[in-house]
Design a protein around this nucleic acid. Sequence first.
DNA 1: TAGCTATATATCGGGTGCCGATGTATCCTC
DNA 2: GAGGATACATCGGCACCCGATATATAGCTA
Lengths: 106, 106
Amino acid sequence: MREPTYFILLALVGEPLHGYAIAQKAKSLSDGRVTLAAGTLYGALERLAASGEIAVDREEAVDGRKRRYYRLDESGRNALAAEAKRMSSAARLGQKALRNFGTAQA
Amino acid sequence: MREPTYFILLALVGEPLHGYAIAQKAKSLSDGRVTLAAGTLYGALERLAASGEIAVDREEAVDGRKRRYYRLDESGRNALAAEAKRMSSAARLGQKALRNFGTAQA
DNA sequence: TAGCTATATATCGGGTGCCGATGTATCCTC
DNA sequence: GAGGATACATCGGCACCCGATATATAGCTA
């Protein structure tokens, strides 16, 4: 799983959100580091919905702008958990290796 | 950075290795989870060498089979460290979110 | 000796997912 | 009325991965 996809799932933990709000939440969660480009966002939402990680929760129209809310499904929650575990483990390996073979300077 | 690339850099921390040995080390480091396909491996080695993350250390011929050893360069070491940090942080966010909004039962 | 596995590298075609650009539409502010 | 924020959709191109295929040596075994 790539980072944009991960942050989409992450943003949906706890509450259903519409696409644009997902992008904003991803940005705030990541301290501004992760910007979901429009093509990435809507493409990923469609893909994730088709494969059952997320589902359309409801649609609204606010001030003439339609909003499509997505919710995290069980499958998506599991995928997020698995990915978090995978990254955590990989990160530990990297940090340990870099520690053990650090640039030795006294 | 994708997982295969990450594990290639990781495998090279501490000692130069040739392509095939990198694939074996990636597999053992990841407890068998990460298998570097040939196309991935040699493609990535070429790419990483071209962009300065790794460099050809030396070439040997053992039993008629040639081996090309790669070493991790400073840039690759930094990239690995940055990636480990990124993954660690993303993993923490995911685990925290899943904890806070866990499937409430009891 | 023929076949399989392991070692070792190279290349090609296809697929996935990301991204920037572009388009549509509404609303608010200056 | 121009620009920016909100909101979604689509398209082309790119990066990277992956399986398949190829080449070559060596060891084991049936």
